[in-house]
Design a protein around this nucleic acid. Structure first.
Lengths: 326, 326
DNA sequence: TTCCGATGTGACATCGTTCTCATAATCATC
DNA sequence: GATGATTATGAGAACGATGTCACATCGGAA
């Protein structure tokens, strides 16, 4: 059942049906005949043919490391409805944290499978920058700031500052830090810099012995806390780059017979769902993940509809969530 | 840059290039010429045109209530890689728990936007069954069993049985149940039936006064626990249809000065990420969410590749996760 | 009467592939 | 040297829409 069949049944030309469907001059009489035939047959124009002809897929490619994560799934929930309201759908690609796969998908999507791309990446290699430099499609970066490209990201530096000042304000002086690899600029670098600067500002610069690097897991948080504590038994506060890491740290401290927060304060970043459930409940920093998704979706839609290629950066503010662990 | 350009540049016909790309007779000499031109130009065939011609989109529509949920995002993580390995991509649609939107997306997708559909639904209305009855595309249901359709689901009944027997085994006799609405057959009915039958089997049938119905939120778990406790102060165990509800119940009990599990045992279903973090850590039942996604993806691929329309049901087993709250 | 703008209309080319089909060349076999 | 199988080739017709364009029609104004 194609547009030709409908035209024949309604006794009009294919062009008339096309005009009826889109918008153009169709007399009332023919309009009605076409309407009835379409209703009777339940005809729906072929998306495939429309796509070939118009070069619009109404699809946005969304590339992300994984989806089973509190923060990332919030981003997706932000993106989804905005796109759907505009008649777009999400083409989801998970890279399992592999930068290579990320580039692969950028490649696949560029072949006009989608109208635009939203990239939620943690690490940007030189290869990334090279490919993005002259990427065929409009795209928006989420979660990291890359100068010269459209992105929506969080104020990780202020997050570090905010949390650390709060901890210093609570009278802690022997503060440790468990971070993540510095390839991740936002989580690995910005957060650390905020923490470092706040400590320096408070007159208690971070000594090398007070710093550890974990991967993103709870287990690794446990291990790094152990290392930290065995080296510096006098530690009275530890800041962790993520809530999951902080959870591991808290577990170790409990096992080691330390009280949180009386003996050692523990804090994380992200306001992960688990952080409200631990006991003591974890002090952390809230990021606007859902909003970052919404903004990214709006941004990509604007770029597609040609509202000027909007390369500006959008930074979202963060907020302290004081609970019981500090 | 299209196939015609490549043909011209290589001095062959379009058909030859097409055969080169797909497979057919191409002489070594021409093969080499075509290869070089493609390499030089970086030509990639247009997915849109291929789709129109071949009627294959290599897209699977995935419809789900939301993504920011530990269980559902695990399902997605199961689906993704399986599809990707087969050269397919996921078209994600979130319905925000609205059955109407669910039907809308089924409608949208049916118009040959995708090659098949995976539907993660919680409620099946008559309308659902009517539409699915003669749906144009292959589809697989996840999480619920609907006779006559291909589905992958969990053994919710055994989950209820297993958990309840365990609790009875721990000597609890005044057992309450906080369930969810019965329109959700798997979570609302099967789990309840398992609990009910195990209690009956243990000679302590569930009295109406021991049953409450919550929505899926922690807050509602708190409220329902309060109602239950105020009515039956002698309660010594409560089973909740989900871990989130159980978390609310645990919070209320703590506030009411009850010890868990000494005074009241608390258990949930789902092995949600939070259940390992509460203190005491929550006893629950593990479901194979990720595997259900993988199996659903494999099933839909098999149906698409015409491996017989495989309407059989696949039930996944569950496992008790004993921790500290019982 | 003539002219003009607004409104309607259908033929036809186009988008970029795949695929059928008719035909050619090559080689071995009888 | 005729026959047939095998390999190779390109012309051209789909696929199912959209959009351009030339042309009709029809009031109403000059």
């Amino acid at each position: 059942m194609n547009i030709g069949d409908i035209a024949r049944m309604a006794g009009v030309s294919r062009a008339a049906v096309s005009r009826y469907l889109n918008s153009g001059y169709v007399s009332d009489e023919k309009r009605e005949r076409i309407r009835r035939v379409i209703e009777e047959t339940g005809y729906q124009p072929s998306v495939m043919a429309q796509t070939l002809r118009t070069k619009k897929t109404f699809l946005i490619g969304v590339i992300l490391p994984r989806v089973n994560s509190d923060s990332i799934s919030s981003v997706i929930e932000g993106i989804g409805p905005v796109l759907q309201d505009a008649g777009y759908n999400m083409l989801l690609a998970t890279t399992d944290n592999s930068p290579v796969k990320e580039l692969e998908f950028l490649q696949i999507f560029s072949n006009h499978r989608v109208d635009g791309v939203i990239l939620v990446a943690t690490v940007f290699t030189e290869e990334h920058k090279r490919i993005l430099k002259d990427y065929a499609l409009p795209f928006v970066l989420v979660g990291q700031s890359l100068p010269g490209f459209a992105c929506v990201y969080h104020d990780d530096y202020s997050a570090g500052l905010l949390l650390t000042r709060y901890i210093i304000g609570k009278g802690r002086r022997n503060v440790g830090y468990i971070g993540v690899l510095s390839e991740d600029e936002a989580v690995g670098q910005r957060r650390f810099e905020g923490v470092r600067d706040a400590l320096a500002e408070g007159g208690i610069p971070l000594s090398p012995g007070m710093r550890e690097t974990a991967d993103f897991s709870t287990e690794s948080g446990y291990e790094r806390m152990k290392a930290l504590f065995e080296r510096r038994g006098d530690i009275d506060a530890v800041i962790c780059a993520t809530d999951r890491i902080a959870l591991g740290a808290m577990r170790y401290l409990k096992e080691a017979g330390k009280r949180v927060p009386e003996d050692v304060a523990v804090a994380g970043f992200g306001d992960n769902i688990v952080s409200g459930v631990t006991s003591p409940a974890m002090t952390t920093v809230r990021f606007r993940y859902r909003e970052s998704g919404m903004l990214a979706a709006e941004k990509i839609l604007k770029e597609i509809s040609g509202g000027g290629d909007d390369r500006q950066q959008v930074m979202l503010d963060v907020g302290l969530v004081p609970r019981e662990s500090v």
